[in-house]
Design a binder for these strands. Structure first.
Length: 180
DNA sequence: TGCTTGATTAACT
DNA sequence: GTTAATCAAGCAC
């Protein structure tokens, strides 16, 4: 599996195309898989983005090759997962905010400690799939990776809304949500 | 070296 | 509707 062409483009263009793709995690031989239903785009010129202001150690993965995983800690207690996009040298990524459980729902329930809201919200999604700092920079299209991205069924339709939880760049409608 | 602020969530009142 | 939990990056001193 090679990195799809659209991931070499801008985040705002790539983000909606990721809807319907499947994210699979294999940790300790246990598999969980979701179909992406909610994403947000972050680009280099975007004051809300971690890549804003140039290349720094923390955001180096965002400036690397597309198709890799960028993970960061949010509010000191949650992990958030992004798919890096744009060519090498461009700091852009797509935040994975929510998905629909396809496999390993029972494991997700155990990891989350609850049965509802398994994979809604970026922090919850990571917790359910066991994504942490140690997966940062992984190639999502390498069959040896713990985290893998696979094509799926594109949604019949989706909507674009303002992004959640940010204070800058709020005018951009770069959040994309699958419509049932 | 110290203070402030989050690409959040869940448990309160 | 409000707030605690919890920590590292970023900025002010």
């Amino acid at each position: 599996m090679t990195v799809p062409e659209f991931l070499f483009g801008e985040a705002r263009t790539a983000a909606p195309l990721l809807l319907g793709w499947r994210l699979q995690s294999t940790i300790d031989g246990q598999v969980t898989e979701v179909e992406l239903t909610e994403v947000e785009a972050y680009s280099q010129e975007d004051p809300a983005s971690h890549s804003f202001g140039g290349l720094r150690p923390r955001n180096a993965v965002m400036y690397g090759s597309p198709g890799r995983l960028y993970v960061y800690r949010s509010y000191g207690m949650h992990w958030c997962a992004n798919v890096v996009c744009g060519p090498d040298g461009m700091g852009a990524a797509v935040l994975l905010r929510a998905g629909k459980p396809l496999r390993g729902a029972e494991l997700m329930t155990r990891r989350r400690g609850r049965v509802d809201d398994l994979t809604t919200g970026p922090g919850n999604l990571c917790q359910a799939m066991g994504i942490t700092d140690e997966h940062k920079g992984q190639d999502l299209f390498d069959s040896n990776s713990a985290l893998r991205l696979m094509s799926g069924q594109p949604p019949a339709s989706y909507i674009a809304t303002p992004r959640v939880g940010i204070s800058k760049g709020v005018d951009r409608r770069w959040r994309f949500v699958t419509q049932a």
